[in-house]
Structure formats: structure tokens, C-alpha cells
């Protein structure tokens, strides 16, 4: 379980998070929904231990992230967290296989080739990132994150740079892989339609959580509008 209590975070004069409290249960799929600049990414980064909150407490499985220093948070991420970013952030000089292997190495995962295959990338093993389309790059990124066998998967606008058809496809891959691994998933999006796929929707506006709602029947990637 990840829990944030009265978390605040500022960048200079900008208050990105103002007294935010939220709980995400194990195995849950939560979406953080809000307009651009509302503080979604900041909240995601604080929850995942990528950044430290200025005030308040963030705990994950009883570990207090707010008390950890940079090295300890790095170790926490190593053990439990996978990331998928809008801009992919693949290492440009490593081929697909080695990019995924980067994730696998952290969890001592020998079966990462299966993950690559299940994302439909088996014929791209030796391709370099700049030879792939956006959707393919994002699938590599998903494989890299899953190869770590993370307990928590954090996604920041994973389909934000993709067209509708490719976006649906990627989203579908993500949801299928999550169903397989059973990891807790926290995804940031500005698209209300995408939020319909989640079990829990956390709505944000100018640094505050304005509404938390549950979807009784989450939709699949192909059932939602876009």
C-alpha cells in the first residue's frame, strides 16, 4: 500500500502539491487525472520516491519514504518500482534487448526475453531505439519496466505522445501485462476517457486532489472513447 499524508511540494514559488493525502491499495489500478500543470507528475514522482516531498509523509509498505535520503530512495526504487514515461527515455546507444536487460538485471530476471516477446517485439531485439516508431519505443519501455518485476508500476502519460490507434494498442498491452503480474499501477493522464480504464480515479486541480472516485466496471482500452 502506498499512502501520502498531507504532502506538500514546491518548486521555488510554485506550489505543485498543496496538502495532498491519498491511499492506493496493493494490486489496485489508480489514475491521476487533471489538466496540464495541475501537479500530477509531481505527485507521481513523490509517491514513487523519485523526488522527496517538502512536507507530509509518504509511506510504501510501511517504509517511510519521506525519511529516506537519496541513496535509500534509490534502493527503494530498485526493489519495488517500475517507471514508464511519456518520452520513453530509452538509452539511445543500447539496442532493444539491452534496454530491457537493464531492467531485468536489477531483479536478476532471466526470463526477460519472454516479456519482450509478449509485447510483440521479438523481431526487434537488435534494433536501436531511433529505428523504432513511438509505439514500439513505448512497448520497449513497458518491457524494461516489467522486466524489473516491480511491485508498483508508475506511468506518466504513457500514451501522451502517441496517436489514438497506437495509444489504444499500448494501453491494452499495459493492462494485459498488469493483469498477468498483478502489480499495483498508478498512471497519470489528462485524458478523462483513459481514466475510465482505472479502478480508482484521483482528480487533481492546481496542486490539490479535488475528487477520488471508484469505477465499478473499468473499461478496456478498446471500449473507451479517446
Amino acid at each position: 500500500m502506498i499512502k501520502a499524508q498531507n504532502v506538500t511540494k514546491s518548486y521555488g514559488k510554485t506550489q505543485a502539491l498543496k496538502d495532498v493525502s491519498i491511499e492506493i491499495a496493493d494490486g489496485e489500478f489508480a489514475v491521476i487525472l487533471g489538466a496540464s500543470g495541475s501537479g500530477k507528475s509531481t505527485l507521481l514522482n513523490v509517491l514513487s520516491g523519485l523526488e522527496r516531498a517538502d512536507g507530509g509523509v509518504v509511506t510504501a509498505d510501511g517504509e517511510n519514504l519521506s525519511e529516506k535520503n537519496e541513496a535509500e530512495r534509490t534502493d527503494f526504487r530498485r526493489r519495488t518500482v517500475g517507471f514508464i514515461f511519456q518520452q520513453y527515455y530509452l538509452l539511445p546507444h543500447l539496442n532493444v534487448q539491452n534496454n530491457v536487460k537493464m531492467g531485468a538485471a536489477l531483479a536478476d530476471n532471466k526470463d526477460y526475453l519472454e516479456i519482450i516477446a509478449s509485447l510483440g517485439l521479438e523481431d526487434k531485439l537488435k534494433a536501436m531505439p531511433n529505428e523504432l516508431s513511438g509505439g514500439q519505443q513505448q512497448r520497449v519501455c513497458i518491457a524494461r519496466a516489467l522486466a524489473k518485476r516491480p511491485k508498483y508500476l508508475f506511468l506518466d502519460e504513457p500514451t501522451g505522445a502517441l496517436d489514438e490507434a497506437t495509444g489504444r494498442e499500448v494501453l491494452d498491452y499495459i493492462m494485459r501485462e498488469r493483469a498477468k503480474s498483478g502489480c499495483t499501477m498508478i498512471m497519470v493522464t489528462h485524458n478523462p476517457a483513459i481514466a475510465e480504464t482505472a479502478e480508482k480515479v484521483i482528480k487533481m486541480n492546481s496542486g490539490k486532489i479535488v475528487e477520488v472516485s471508484k469505477n465499478a466496471h473499468p473499461k478496456t482500452a478498446y471500449e473507451i472513447g479517446w
Binding site: 534509490t74 527503494f76 530498485r78 538509452l91 539511445p92 536489477l106
Partner: peptide
């Protein structure tokens, strides 16, 4: 720098 930042986010130690 980019390699370092990605590695750090993923949890590679210093």
C-alpha cells in the same frame, strides 16, 4: 547525463 538519470530513476545505485 541522460544515462545517469535513467539509471538513477530505475534504481541503480550510485
Amino acid at each position: 547525463a541522460a544515462n545517469i538519470a535513467v539509471m538513477r530513476a530505475m534504481g541503480f545505485s550510485a
